[in-house]
Each structure stands twice: as C-alpha cells, then as structure tokens.
C-alpha cells in the first residue's frame, strides 16, 4: 500500500512538473518590462514558500518532539530542516540570477534577500548541531529541537529588523499584478514544486527511519555481544 502511494505520489510529482514547465515556458506570456527572465519568478517564489513551510514544520515537529519524545517527530524535524535549507539555497541562487539583468547587480542588501540569507544561515547552524554532536543520540535530538524552536521565533524578528536596516533598498515589489495566464502558471508551479517538496520530505523521513532502526539494532547486538564476551 505504502509502496503504491509512493509510486502514485512520484507519478503526480512528475506530471505536475511537466505541466508546470509547460505553463512557465509556453503558456504564460512574456512579461512586458522584464522580458524572459521574469519566468524565473514561478519557481523562485514557489521554492521560497516551500522553504518557509519547511521551517515552520521544523518548529512544530520540535515542539512535539520535546513534549512526546517520539522519534517520528524528530524524523520530521530533520527532514524538514534539510529540505528547507535546500529550497532556501535555490531561492538564494535563482534570486541573484534574476536580479542581475533587472537590477544590474547580482546582490543587493535588500530586505528580503537579507532575510532569506540570515534565515538560511540559522538552519545551516541547526544542521551543524546535528552533524557534529558529540553526546548521545537522544541529547542531540533535544538540542536540535531547542534550536528548531528558538530559530523559528527569531524568524519574524529578523524580518522586522532587516526591513529597518535597509528600507531604502526595498526592490521586491510589494504587490504583483499578473496576467491571468501568469496566475495559472504561478499556482501550477506552486503545486509542482510543493509536491516535489513533499515527495522528497517523505523519502528523507523514510531514510531517517531506516538509519534509526539500523542504529537501534546495532546497539542491541553490541549489548548482546558485550554480555557474552569475557
């Protein structure tokens, strides 16, 4: 059943992606002012939404882990954090590539860019805590959960501060007027990127489950051998 669902989801992701690529490159009209490069918008914004959703999932899963101490919440947290970082990285790469022809430079210390960069760095630190932990597995999970909560509380504060810090650099449009075809392309892209995100999230959680199980078996075996040995 789970295998069937997995294949079904993969098939859905694939068809949604084909539809999205069609909508982005062929269906949606070329934007008047920015030209072709505006077509970056569809996947850029969808990835940004996915990364912020991922960071909220880290937050919720961290709270649940600390309350219930169930491994599945930790699996959700680590998988979301990794994918959040991956999608934030995509946003940080596609953003400058869009900015170069339009703003004339790759990078501006513009509020939303700065916000994404700082948020990205916080979750890179989160992954580092997990990767370089020296204590018990259980302790690492607790530390990660604490960090997952603290970092997410900081997200609105970063947003607020960065807006003050470079208010005169605000270049992202506050409100976007889109042609109806563009709106369609935007939502189709969001569904495609979002389902890809969910698909990868699921796979990453399954991988984590396998490695958790393996570690537990290894510990049990070590314990048995320790008892038998001299």
């Amino acid at each position: 059943m789970s295998r069937l669902a997995s294949t079904g989801l993969a098939f859905f992701v694939f068809s949604a992606m084909v539809a999205a690529l069609y909508a982005v490159f062929l269906y949606a009209p070329t934007e008047g002012q920015m030209g072709l490069v505006q077509r970056i918008f569809y996947f850029h914004v969808s990835s940004a939404i996915c990364s912020l959703v991922a960071f909220s999932l880290v937050f919720l899963a961290s709270i649940q882990y600390l309350r219930r101490r169930e491994e599945r919440w930790d699996r959700l947290a680590v998988a979301s954090a990794e994918l959040g970082v991956i999608f934030a990285l995509i946003v940080l790469i596609t953003g400058p590539l869009w900015a170069r022809p339009i703003w004339g430079v790759f990078w501006r210390w513009e509020p939303r860019l700065t916000f994404m960069l700082i948020t990205f760095l916080m979750y890179v630190a989160y992954l580092m805590v997990r990767a370089y932990a020296a204590g018990s597995v259980e302790q690492t999970r607790r530390f990660a959960a604490v960090l997952g909560i603290v970092a997410f509380v900081n997200v609105p504060l970063v947003h607020f501060s960065v807006n003050l810090w470079s208010a005169d650099q605000q270049l992202h449009p506050q409100k976007v007027e889109l042609a109806p075809e563009m709106v369609v392309a935007r939502y189709v892209s969001l569904v495609a990127v979002g389902s890809l995100f969910l698909f990868l999230l699921k796979r990453r959680m399954e991988l984590e489950l396998a490695s958790q199980t393996l570690n537990r078996i290894r510990q049990e075996l070590d314990g048995e051998r320790g008892d038998d040995g001299p």
Partner: peptide, 14 residues
C-alpha cells in the same frame, strides 16, 4: 559563533 551569530543579527542591527 555558528549558532549565535545568525541569531544575534536582528539585535545587532538595532
């Protein structure tokens, strides 16, 4: 520093 610096940026700005 890897943990504290990104967290402290908002406070640093102000």
């Amino acid at each position: 520093p890897l943990l504290v610096l990104p967290m402290i940026y908002p406070a640093l700005i102000w």
